[in-house]
């Protein structure tokens, strides 16, 4: 379970203080698929970076399965990202000179998993995200956008994280490919019982998630749904 408590992140910009995240609180159940929508610059990515321990909040806390991130040293936050978080980015952020399978193996290498085991798991994950096996050994900079995003999702799943944070995962993809990616995330959330939080400005994509939050001027509100979309 993910619990976010009164999260604030503020920056100084000259004489002004900017609060892209201003007192955000919400809870997500294990295995849920949720989305955060908002305009560009509304603080979506900042909120995501706080949840993923890429950045530290000015105040407030994120509690993952009872473990508070507030006050954790950098080493522990690294461990948290490695063990509990999977990231999927709009621009994929794969290592371009590594193959698809090598990219997926990276988080497992950082976790100290033996090579044979991580190779096997990487191949399984790439099959799960439906990447053509012939492309497993291909460098990721020679894959299409949709294929790269599949590799990125496989990489996010590598260490069986508790939470997958996806920042505009379909932003660089055409509508059809984007739809496939969302279906993929949805099925993975179901199959792996992994909590997935998708940040997007695409309302149609947000409609496909169980819960949808709107971030506006740093404040989060949940849109009420009549039923589950899963």
């Amino acid at each position: 379970m993910i619990v976010v408590k009164d999260l604030v992140r503020q920056f100084k910009s000259g004489d002004r203080t900017i609060k892209p995240v201003n007192g955000v609180s919400f809870e997500l159940d294990k295995g849920s698929l949720a989305s955060i929508v908002g305009k560009s610059g509304s603080g979506k990515s900042t909120l995501l970076s706080l949840l993923g321990a890429l950045d530290k909040p000015t105040s407030g806390d994120v509690v993952v399965d009872g473990v508070s991130l507030a006050g954790l040293p950098d080493g522990k936050l690294t461990e948290y990202r490695r063990r509990d978080i999977g990231f999927v980015f709009q621009q994929f952020n794969l290592i371009p000179n590594l193959s698809a399978v090598d990219n997926v193996m990276l988080p497992m290498e950082f976790s100290g998993i033996r090579k044979a085991a991580r190779l096997q798991r990487a191949k399984e994950l790439l099959e799960q995200v439906q990447l053509d096996p012939e492309k497993h050994s291909r460098r990721t900079n020679r894959l299409s956008g949709g294929e790269q995003q599949r590799v990125a999702i496989a990489r996010a799943l590598a260490n069986e994280p508790k939470l997958i944070l996806a920042d505009e995962p379909t932003g660089n993809l055409d509508e059809q490919t984007g739809g496939h990616i969302i279906e993929l995330l949805s099925s993975l959330s179901r199959d792996h019982n992994t909590t997935i939080l998708v940040v997007t400005h695409d309302r149609s994509l947000a409609q496909k998630t169980q819960r949808c939050f709107r971030l506006q001027q740093g404040r989060l509100t949940e849109e009420v749904r009549t039923g589950s979309r899963r």
Partner: peptide, 15 residues
Amino acid sequence: REIGVLKAIGARNRT
């Protein structure tokens, strides 16, 4: 950015 990616997916500084 690549270093940021490696850190985001759990690479230690020393690695």
